[in-house]
Nucleic acid binder design. Sequence first.
DNA 1: AAGCATGATGGAATCGTTTCCATGGAAGTC
DNA 2: GACTTCCATGGAAACGATTCCATCATGCTT
Lengths: 353, 353
Amino acid sequence: MEVRRVTIKDVAEAAGVGVATVSRVLSGGSASPETRERVLAVAAQLDYRPSALGRNLRQRRTGGIGLLVPDLTDTFFGQVAEGVLACARSAGEPVVVGSTGDDPEQEAELVGMLLEQSVDRLVAVPSGGAETWLPVTRAGMTVVFADRLPGGPADDGLPGSTADLMLLDGIPARPPARAVADVPAVLADDRSGIRTAVRYLHGLGHRRIAFLGGPGHDRRVAAFREAVGAAVDEELVVFATGTRDSAYAAASGLFQSRPDLTAVLAAGNMLGEAAVLAARELDLRVPRDVSLVMYDDVPWAELCSPPLTVIAQPGRDIGYRAAELVLRGTGRRPRGVTLPTELIVRGSCGPRH
Amino acid sequence: MEVRRVTIKDVAEAAGVGVATVSRVLSGGSASPETRERVLAVAAQLDYRPSALGRNLRQRRTGGIGLLVPDLTDTFFGQVAEGVLACARSAGEPVVVGSTGDDPEQEAELVGMLLEQSVDRLVAVPSGGAETWLPVTRAGMTVVFADRLPGGPADDGLPGSTADLMLLDGIPARPPARAVADVPAVLADDRSGIRTAVRYLHGLGHRRIAFLGGPGHDRRVAAFREAVGAAVDEELVVFATGTRDSAYAAASGLFQSRPDLTAVLAAGNMLGEAAVLAARELDLRVPRDVSLVMYDDVPWAELCSPPLTVIAQPGRDIGYRAAELVLRGTGRRPRGVTLPTELIVRGSCGPRH
DNA sequence: AAGCATGATGGAATCGTTTCCATGGAAGTC
DNA sequence: GACTTCCATGGAAACGATTCCATCATGCTT
């Protein structure tokens, strides 16, 4: 039962050469044609697989990349993960995945675990703020953010995200003071997506539009405020935590406290789900009584009745591009990427009642 | 910029002890109280983190566990993954995730990658058959299957799955001949779930019930055949590949070729989605024209209209238990686990037209 | 008091690679 | 023909932990 692993030594011995030569042949170094051939033949015959353990130790890094998402149960993050996995597979790299539950504490813990594993490249949908991420980049990790940027420290909401927003649009007013801002990111063009949706609703006559947000939706709410302009009614901007229950409670509370609202913009698919459920529970008909636009084009948006009008963002692409960036190693010019969003009009919006 | 890692040597030196002592203290070996205290203090002060690399090489195994699922975009597998991740986190173990796309070839490739990484514990929702998994277990990997068992080799459909089915129910007729059958598994009680659903439909008067399956649904279709009995109409048993398009095509084809069917049992949530879509496209109303039961209780099942009657299986629990099993290391008595399913009646089934 | 058991301790080997460096032979140049 | 250059090659030193084993001091038994 004890199957000893075939090591490079075995190959060297069997081929009658030194271990150094075997290593060179296998990793593309120089060697005479006949030696190369012999070594390769022996390696194949013994079914030799170099141990990543030895290599990693010697090179002081794990080959793989880390991936941190808030919740794999959320279809959107599932898409992001699939993108990262696809890219990593084509590079032959393993991916260590962690689910943070949108909890900065768990996130920090998982980052610590990755550090311990010497995983030095990471794609993250961040939950914590700069206080989490500064030490990480400082520890020498190559990080690429996906879908979001880390907000400021918990106690200062706006300054951080405002600066981030400016970076997002590619026009940082001045050299960003915070090192976290130097981390490249792959984001959807939330600003444009939200603006398009708000304009669309506006065109249908809606004036009291509510925003239903969740953790990590700082940039979206900022874009919403900007799009709505001075007219923003703060009571109509509501935030939930990451759970389904909280999302439902927020949606339900919104509908009940402000029966005069005529449209809701849900900033994520779980929030959209909650909005649909809450509306149904309160006998509000969509789109007759209330119009609904949801962020994320998940497959089931089409199954709802009416089918949901959504702001689609390319989850898979976001993951793929982020993985590409982190694998390329971001050569000193960490340029972020912004991918387009698209308003897909289905049946959940109508003219103001 | 070059931040040298703090090693055990540094700690030893700073504490004025040998490396062996440090190692012992940190991994709970024996040491005098004062030494222990001093070492711990120094380690904390230097922010020392033992490198998993060194440890793994010495112990000839990576601590972590592997996880192979067909598609993270499928909510059910997202749930399974969340379960595995939760269990692994509580054990402090990293999880290397791979997405197989239900393709045995990709699966084999990913397994190879894990082997190379010396990941020796694996939770898998298998796509390939015994020909993939025999070598793996033989290589010394501890494997636990989740949600499915590997089918037989591609060319012999039934014998393999039949044997597996018997194992599932805990009454293997004889010592199983195939080593793969010895791999423990965490499964939902498909047989009972399917039977309940079929009986429910039967009770509503349905006689021509179709089965819409996908890859990995061998056990479900077997249970379906068993539940329907001799009356099974082979034309009503349809399989799709793993993609959404294929699922839609299968559903659509089914409805068109057999307009006389009165109920559909979709063996997975993607197939259920396809059935809803196809029915709508063909102007079949649910449940008036056709009743629908779907496997998997995904959150959006409730959002459909009518809300879908489903066979719920505990995805998260399946993942969690599987991870538990694989972490415990299955001491020679690889007992599988079967978790209950539940028929949740909503609004997608009605009496036969 | 001598011998023995016990427990703390540090040196050194080990895991499987990569990579530095020295060696040796062949080929090329004057 | 002697000198340099070049390349293939193998030995050995890392990498950072764990763990075996020898050493030594201490305390106990007889």
